[in-house]
Amino acid sequence: MSQALKIAVILSSTRPTRLADKPATWFLDFAKAQHPEIAFELVDLRDYDLPFFDEVASNAWAPSQSAEAVKWQKKVGEFDGYIFVTAEYNHSITGVLKNALDQAYVEWGKKPMGAVGYGGLGAGRAIEHLRAIAVELQMVPVRNAVHIGGGDFMAISPMGQNAEMSTIAPHIEGSAKALLDDIAWWGAATKAARG
């Protein structure tokens, strides 16, 4: 087993007008600079044409029949941890993210997860919901998260000033560093335990 951690940064919205690309790209660059020993990869849910989950059971109990679901499971299985870049839709995560989470089970387990959230309240409610789902999938939710809310959200949003991420970077770099340190520690610990 390779010693280098491989962490997915998952874009959790597929809307044509999504904001996700802006914080995801910034976060990926920041992550690579903070932890060059970790291999970070951007994983876009747009690249997976997942059907609504309609398998006979989770892949913990029966092999998935959907070729797209199997493709997704293989991709998820490549990683030692996950950071979800998510909006907040009606106090929760995006529907497409919930579906993607449901399409795998075995692959998520015993690996850390964290989140970068954006929206009026920094996607705080969505991230808490995501953590609860992650526990059921046997992931290890980490304490720290990045919350882009309020004035920072309006600063980078097309509904506001549509500014670059550098405008708000000083406000979120501390939480981004804490999130990455959590993922690095828990990623190493869980990878050693799985090995």
Rank of each mutant, 00 (worst) to 15 (best):
Val43His: 08
Glu164Ala: 11
Ser66Cys: 05
Pro170Glu: 07
Ala132Phe: 01
Ile133Glu: 02
Lys71Gly: 08
Arg18Val: 07
Gln73Tyr: 02
Met139Ile: 01
Lys75Glu: 07
Ala57Arg: 09
Ser58Met: 04
Leu130Pro: 03
Phe30Asn: 05
Asp47Asn: 11
Trp61Gly: 10
Phe30His: 06
Ala169Arg: 09
Ala126His: 00
Lys111Gln: 09
Asp181Lys: 04
Arg131Asp: 13
Ala163Pro: 07
Ala67Phe: 04
Lys71Val: 13
Val9Lys: 06
Glu164Trp: 01
Gly187Cys: 04
Arg143Met: 13
Asp47Arg: 13
Leu121Gln: 06
Gly151Asn: 12
Gly124Cys: 15
Gly195Lys: 01
Gln65Ile: 12
Asn99Ala: 00
Gly77Leu: 07
Gly114Lys: 02
Ala20His: 02
Ala20Asn: 07
Ser12Leu: 02
Arg131Leu: 05
Thr17Glu: 14
Gly124Val: 15
Glu37Leu: 04
Tyr118Ser: 03
Gly187Phe: 03
Leu42Phe: 11
Ala8Asn: 06
Gln73Ser: 03
Asp152Tyr: 15
Ala188Asn: 13
Ala169Thr: 14
Arg125Phe: 11
Ser2Leu: 07
Gly120Gln: 09
Asn162Thr: 03
Tyr82Gly: 14
Glu136Ala: 05
Gly151Leu: 15
Gly77Thr: 05
Asn99Gln: 05
Gln103Ser: 15
Ser64Thr: 01
Gly174Asn: 10
Lys74Met: 07
Ile148Glu: 09
Gln103Leu: 12
Ala126Val: 00
Ser13Asn: 01
Gly95Trp: 03
Pro63Met: 03
Gly187Asn: 04
Ser157Arg: 05
Ala188Leu: 11
Pro170Leu: 05
Leu28Met: 09
Val96Pro: 02
Val43Glu: 13
Arg194His: 10
Trp72Pro: 11
Leu45Phe: 00
Lys6His: 06
Ala33Ile: 04
Ser157Asn: 10
Thr190Asn: 15
Leu19Ala: 10
Ile7Trp: 04
Lys74Ala: 12
